[in-house]
Amino acid sequence: MGKRVTFGNTFIGIALIVPQLLLVFTFFYWPTGEALYWAFTLEPPFGGGNQWVGWQNFETVFSDPKYYNSVKVSLIFAVGTTTMSISFALLLALFVDRQLPGYRVYRFAYFWPYALAAPAVGLAFRFIFAPQAGFVSAINTYFPGAWNPATNGNDAMLLIMLANAWKMVGYNFIFLLAGLQSMPRALLEAAALDGAGALRRIRDFQLPLLAPTLFFVLVINLTESFVDSFGIVEIVTNGGPANATDLMVFKIYTDGFVGKDYSLAAAQSIILMLLVVALTVVQFRFIERRVQYT
């Protein structure tokens, strides 16, 4: 892993890595360990040290219908927002890759929403889709009660999915376009010479070759939607109406910091950690094997 030519001064070498190790220990390993400890202990109501309770916290979590609801809406959110965002980005990337005049302008214009802060995007969407103001609620004048994210759980869920998908389009677009552009042009031209039209080339040539990149953005999007959704939920729906958008990260936050139940929040954190680690392992394995077409 290192170099053939190295420096002999071990003391300096170790001194250089110490700051990073201290940070990682203090803000990563210690908190993660503490989450594990809290997940298996309970703080007695009248002070004193934490008491070991085994799986009791997890049993509490798993016997709570609200938790299942939170897992369910997280999955719906993850699948919905990922599908919307990737398919839209894929459509744009495929057509930008045709490199008609002006494609550079589009290439620039598509990725910038990714630079915006999630809560700001959330607030913007909350206004545009607000039931009593904004834009979309105009539909209510023709179909009364057709759109109201403040009272209708499905509308609220659709709203946060849209906001998150809109924000992620740029990211997905960048990766998919890079994947398309790394394909050898000569193969594409050979296919064209053999009489394959543009749509045929997309279906039989570009999409199959793009599969690894698609898989990569899919995993990243799922992870992000589990982890990074807090800002949008907090600003747009606050978990409501009636817990319809009570995503897992948001529930950990409300149980831990609003409800002050660290043990319960820690047990949920551990479950979410396992989920995210599983997704990340899949992603790392994929990066190792990333296929090169040369």
């Binding site: 990682v24 908190p31 990260v249 950990i252 954190s269 950690m273 995210v276 990340t280 392992v281």
Partner: peptide, 19 residues
Amino acid sequence: IFITLMLPLEVRIVPTYAV
């Protein structure tokens, strides 16, 4: 150090706050 990539701040937010 590399393993820290696996768990973003958001999923270990409660204990990190305590730290």
